[in-house]
């Protein structure tokens, strides 16, 4: 049994009087690669923030292992791409707690180069972050999270806006990092491209609707309760493929 890093118990979060999360129980253990799926407004990002400790719950609690270091990769849509930072500066700012020299030290520079090399960004350290491809941009923020020496990394919609090939690259990279021991929690809208490839999924719509492997969770009943709309699940090459089930198809079936 792997060590539990973060434990959310009976977690309820509201924005004003509006409940965003209601009595959510979730456990993140060492070595997890966990995906949180759900429709827009289902509370995915809020759950991420609550697990990180940046949102205070109305009731319930989030317990984190003492001294646990975490990193967050934000949605690329939230990044100010005109901000004047190079790849190296962007990664280097992450080590900000306590007193640090304003400049990146020689040993830190070596670490940054090692991380960027590992993530396929070698030689791009002096480039402005805007002058990178979508996949490279996503990897810069992953590199920044890794530079904090995080044990757990949270990614908010890491493949949003990426093309299919880049999405596969990011997924492959996350799998590699997880195999190397990094615990990863991500949110995604992408059921087939991302969620179906993860070992563990949580279906969320204000509360946890289902939790388990793709085979256990990607089933019509759980998906309909999560998304509020009927969905069909097909088998393809041993994998689950979720397709929208337009009403006329259902009508045809019932007729």
């Amino acid at each position: 049994m792997n060590e539990v890093f973060i434990q959310a118990t009976n977690l309820t979060v509201t924005y004003g009087s509006e409940p965003v999360l209601v009595e959510v129980d979730l456990e993140v253990a060492e070595g997890d690669l966990l995906g949180i799926v759900g429709p827009s407004g289902s509370g995915k990002s809020t759950l991420l923030k609550a697990l990180l400790g940046s949102v205070a719950p109305l009731s319930g609690q989030v317990e984190r292992r003492a001294g646990l270091t975490v990193g967050l990769v934000p949605q690329v849509e939230h990044i100010d791409w005109s901000f004047p930072v190079t790849v190296a500066e962007c990664v280097g700012m992450a080590r900000a707690r306590g007193w640090r020299t304003p400049w990146i030290t020689r040993s830190e520079r070596a670490e940054i180069c090692e991380i960027t090399e590992r993530l396929g960004l070698g030689g791009l350290e002096g480039r402005h972050i805007r002058d990178l491809s979508g996949g490279q941009q996503q990897r810069v923020f992953l590199a920044r999270a890794l530079f904090t020496d995080a044990k757990v990394i949270f990614l908010d919609e890491p493949t949003s806006g990426l093309d299919v090939r880049t999405r596969h690259e990011v997924l492959h990279l996350l799998g590699e990092l997880n195999e190397q021991g990094l615990t990863i929690v991500l949110t995604t809208h992408d059921l087939n491209g991302i969620a179906a490839h993860l070992p563990r999924i949580v279906c969320l719509n204000t509360t946890v609707i289902g939790e388990g492997s793709p085979n256990e969770v990607l089933i019509p009943d759980v998906l309909e309760r999560t998304y509020g709309s009927p969905m069909r699940v097909l088998e393809h090459g041993g994998m689950r493929v979720v397709v929208d089930s337009p009403l006329f198809l259902l009508d045809e079936k019932s007729a």
Binding site: H78, C90, A96
Partner: peptide, 10 residues
């Protein structure tokens, strides 16, 4: 640059 992430990372 990124107040939310800065806060989340301590």
């Amino acid at each position: 640059f990124d107040a939310e992430v800065a806060k989340a990372t301590g």
